[in-house]
Design a binder for these strands. Structure first.
Length: 193
DNA sequence: CAATAGATCATCT
DNA sequence: GATGATCTATTGC
């Protein structure tokens, strides 16, 4: 069962931390890919100048202000797509950028979509890489993550090893640089560089 | 190893 | 018309 709506209906920072270790799943049985979330960043509402939602509701930021548990996917640098997960109650802005994944299932599919990757650890260790590896595109923008082809699941029982959460400033932004809103599994080799 | 250039386009000014 | 929540290849120590 996918994580329920109420998991996402909380402050973005809480959801960002709790998503670590969860499993992102995409595709039908024939072409299924699954990977563990090992790195996230929180983007807040007003006051967070780095967030797309900082300037309020626009056609693009519509889904960030929408109900929690949906995907916000956008094009960056005219070339790559980034996956975010919407948090906070409907009407409030807040989302989590998924920055890195540890591939679990469908690694053959991932390799095919990422021919330049050297090893398993290069398949999805960055926001633009993981959307390619998982086959996520802008057509998933607004998709409901509590049902459908793209979902997030709790780690399987017995599979989950305990881990420590590390915190740092966010990567690749020019505003609100100082905020400690990047979260990752300490020591995990699939975290971005 | 570090630094940098280039690819390429939706969004907002 | 400028600007990115990026990645890759290439150049230079």
């Amino acid at each position: 069962m996918p994580l329920p709506r109420h998991f996402y209906n909380r402050p973005a920072v809480e959801v960002a931390r709790d998503l670590l270790g969860k499993i992102l799943v995409h595709g039908p049985a024939r072409a299924k890919t699954a990977a563990r979330i090992v790195e996230t960043e929180a983007y807040l509402g007003a006051g967070d100048q780095a967030a797309h939602s900082a300037r309020g509701l626009t056609p693009r930021t519509r889904v960030i202000f929408g109900p929690p548990g949906h995907a916000y996917v956008y094009l960056i640098y005219g070339m790559y797509e980034c996956l975010n997960i919407v948090a906070e109650a409907e009407g409030a802005a807040g989302c989590l950028l998924i920055r890195a994944l540890e591939p679990l299932t469908g690694i053959g599919h991932m390799r095919r979509r990422r021919p330049t990757a050297r090893g398993i650890e290069d398949l999805a260790n960055g926001p633009g890489k993981l959307t390619l590896a998982m086959g996520i595109t802008r057509r998933h923008n607004g998709a409901d993550l509590t049902r459908g082809a793209l979902t997030v699941h709790a780690a399987l029982d017995g599979t989950a090893e305990p881990f420590e959460i590390a915190v740092s400033p966010r990567i690749g932004i020019t505003q609100s640089r100082e905020l400690p809103l990047r979260f990752y599994i300490a020591g995990n080799r699939f975290v971005s560089r």
